[in-house]
Design a protein around this nucleic acid. Sequence first.
DNA 1: GCGCGCTATGTTTGCGCTAACATCGAGGCC
DNA 2: GGCCTCGATGTTAGCGCAAACATAGCGCGC
Lengths: 343, 343
Amino acid sequence: MTAGRTRRTGRAVSMADVARLAGVSAQTVSRVSTGHPGVVESTRRQVLAAMQELGYRPNSAARALKLGEFRTIGVILFTLATTGNSRTVEAIAGYAAKEGYAITLIPVAVPTQDGVLGAFTRLGELAVDGVIVIMEVHLLDAANLTLPPGVQVVVVDSDAGDRYPVVDTDQADGARQAVQHLLDLGHETVWHVTGPAESFAAERRTQAWRRTLLEAGRPVPPVHRGDWSADSGYRAGLALAAEPRCTAVFAANDQMALGVLRALHEHGRAVPGDVSIVGFDDIPDSSSYLPPLTTVHQDFAEVGRRCVQGLLRQIRDEPDGPGTVLVPTRLVRRASTAPPPSN
Amino acid sequence: MTAGRTRRTGRAVSMADVARLAGVSAQTVSRVSTGHPGVVESTRRQVLAAMQELGYRPNSAARALKLGEFRTIGVILFTLATTGNSRTVEAIAGYAAKEGYAITLIPVAVPTQDGVLGAFTRLGELAVDGVIVIMEVHLLDAANLTLPPGVQVVVVDSDAGDRYPVVDTDQADGARQAVQHLLDLGHETVWHVTGPAESFAAERRTQAWRRTLLEAGRPVPPVHRGDWSADSGYRAGLALAAEPRCTAVFAANDQMALGVLRALHEHGRAVPGDVSIVGFDDIPDSSSYLPPLTTVHQDFAEVGRRCVQGLLRQIRDEPDGPGTVLVPTRLVRRASTAPPPSN
DNA sequence: GCGCGCTATGTTTGCGCTAACATCGAGGCC
DNA sequence: GGCCTCGATGTTAGCGCAAACATAGCGCGC
């Protein structure tokens, strides 16, 4: 049947129907359906023809009930609105599909403990074999969650390495590369716009920024805090623009870097002539900023792949890999960084 | 049990176990579990306590098998990388959760007919009651798809209104507003950067742009084609910058507008002094572009809500709403538009 | 005081599938 | 030629749940 509006047709076609039409037993239909060997070619073809004719569609609930596994992975997250999350989820979905697993999205309604609790409660009733949690794990802890038994977990973007397997971008090294790049260019020190306080990713980028400065014996300027949005970057940028000694800025993500760019521009500070800026994420747009942004590239696809890999290993009860997987980052040099003005 | 690394524990807890511990029948456990009335308070409490103690988790496969419905909605899409898609999916997930439905993501591996075919084949084996298709429907048609019987469909962003219910942003009116705004500002005509040829959204924005110009008796400049990316916008912008008579541009999305902005800037054409630009989508970043972008706001949350609503109506066999739901758009005026230079 | 109706709970059944076991027939080996 | 093997297919059973039906106990009206 070609795609067209279909109406509910009472009872769905079952194996028994196919078996009857093909003149075989239901078990043989099952064998064909699951690709088991030991079905002679002529029989197989008959069964396939009967399936085709009736529009047979295996009932995955029955299969799951019998087999005791759902072949589905749940993904719990706060939002798809950030580039990192949506990219990671997309990669997870792709790799999971390749392994024959479906993805169920479990959004947290509100980013509070109650919201997280609600998501985990729903999870308990969901048909999943494992979960990938994309969120700050301290919220997860704080909510004192009950994880349904038999459900495996992998966490992204947190520091729960001692209790759950964790997959994450190498935040610290990325930040170090960003700061070192600015220092190498000749800047005396580097100012910093960080992300929200509850973000481990932000925290680690900030730690690495501070450590890199300290190790180089440079002064550590006060931190400006944003919330990942371009608007918050703009507000931080306003403060930075009023700071004559500021010649280099490391923003914890590209969007905030965009806001800083705008603030500096509006206050007549040229980038990179007067001030250099480095972002984090390498979102596609960042190469079209004014000027194109030097930033730290994150490999979200790899993060997604490693998540699925780690989770499936647990589900299949294979020996665990390392507690924490760090996906490397790399600095992408574009036009927003240059040596400091030589006044 | 507090969240912690759990190991597979053989067989999961079933209703029978709970019933045994609580000293009641499995049916009573079922009644408590599904919130049916007719269970006396003391019994209910006993059952609840037993559930708690054993960590009972209803087996949704068994429930689905018994009830013949999965309470799950599939979402088929090409990518989560575009703002519109990820926002829409997020809204869908939220509203679906509110209605007690989970959502399963079915990514199309490669944006070809084979890819779409693969996704629909997987769909056939998936435990879903309905599908929301977020893609250009002509690809859907071309692939000559088999839609599993009993699966309901709602389509986003296409013109299949005659065969499937469709929910979409009012592309045409948004584009009209954008063009009219520029005309009202005094521009002689408006140039246009469109999206990929296979996109209905792009096609309709372009049609509305052309119609609005024609109705106002203005010349229709040649169309520049992009692929939604900022880079493609930049390339179009390069051409536009070389066009001295161009004083107003309508880009089919914000990212391409960003690219145009960069190209014009690099060629010394001031925005909005020399050239005005309007985008489409109102992504959060657009308010931090240089200058902040005038753009057409899309209400993705509403699109998601209407999708879920429409699909559930079909699943529940309620009378269909209108074939096509159009979610209104509105122009957001920021700093990238102004009257043309008065030379 | 007897039966009627009503409520709380129990029992039976089967949803569709597949693992495990059963059967059946063809061919090989002595 | 009888028996054994092995490959192809059939039969049985049960996964966990909830609808439908069964039962039991209680209060109430007359």
